[in-house]
């Protein structure tokens, strides 16, 4: 299936109710506002972005890096155009008798979830989730956030392949940061595979080629 590439300002539909992600409405017509692939379905039209920064939405799982520790929480860099904030009350590891810097210090990486976004796009994070935790080992790989769905694959197929082929832990943050942990040579293979996925994101038969790539790398 081939999808058309659309540019900002391209007319997508004449029914304003069909407007989906990546579109805007003017004079009752739907136009694209970003560069992306045009996706038309029965319910509406949307544009799948090809490029661009991560824009947070509640419930997203992210990998972030602590940039600042303040008296009421931590400022976290989530590779977006906004700094996110993790309040003390949202980190269950924090107890009143512990020092803030001992719980999380500048430069620490964390797996965290977006709790809410206020209308001015201030992002509040939470650690109150089973998967959320600080990560003190492993490796973090950064990719273009528009490619994240490809790394995960259809219903998680790609990520399952990587995990089962290599036997390592992988956590994909929606913001394009990916945490890998396990045997270091295998992590290196996974890193290479992820970059390959990013590069060839929209080509056909990608999963098969990734399996082949991993097999070849393993033999080395």
């Amino acid at each position: 299936m081939s999808r058309k590439i659309v540019l900002p300002g391209d007319l997508l539909a004449t029914n304003p109710r069909a407007a989906g992600y990546g579109t805007y409405i003017e004079d009752g017509k739907v136009y694209s506002k970003i560069l992306g692939l045009f996706d038309k379905s029965d319910t509406g039209v949307r544009v799948i972005p090809l490029k661009g920064k991560y824009s947070p939405s509640p419930g997203d799982m992210l990998v972030g890096i602590v940039r600042e520790a303040t008296s009421n929480g931590w400022a976290i860099d989530i590779h977006s155009h906004y700094q996110a904030f993790l309040p003390l009350s949202e980190n269950p590891e924090f107890k009143p008798n512990r020092k803030i810097n001992d719980v999380l210090d500048i430069g620490d990486a964390v797996i965290t979830k977006v709790l809410s976004i206020d209308p001015r796009l201030k992002v509040t994070l939470t650690m109150r989730d089973k998967v959320c935790r600080p990560v003190r080992f492993g490796r973090i790989v950064a990719i273009n956030p528009a490619r994240v769905p490809r790394v995960i694959g259809k219903k998680g197929s790609m990520i399952k392949t990587l995990k089962s082929e290599l036997g390592i832990q992988i956590l994909v943050g929606q913001n394009g940061l990916i945490w890998l942990s396990g045997d270091s040579s295998r992590v290196s293979i996974a890193e290479g595979a992820i970059y390959k996925i990013e590069e060839e994101a929209h080509t056909e038969g990608l999963t098969d080629r990734i399996i082949e790539y991993i097999k070849k790398e393993k033999e080395k």
């Binding site: 900002p8 300002g9 990546g22 805007y24 003017e26 136009y31 506002k33 970003i34 560069l35 528009a146």
Partner: peptide
């Protein structure tokens, strides 16, 4: 850069 714009 993938920035949202109304046109070009």
């Amino acid at each position: 850069a993938g920035i949202a714009m109304k046109g070009i």
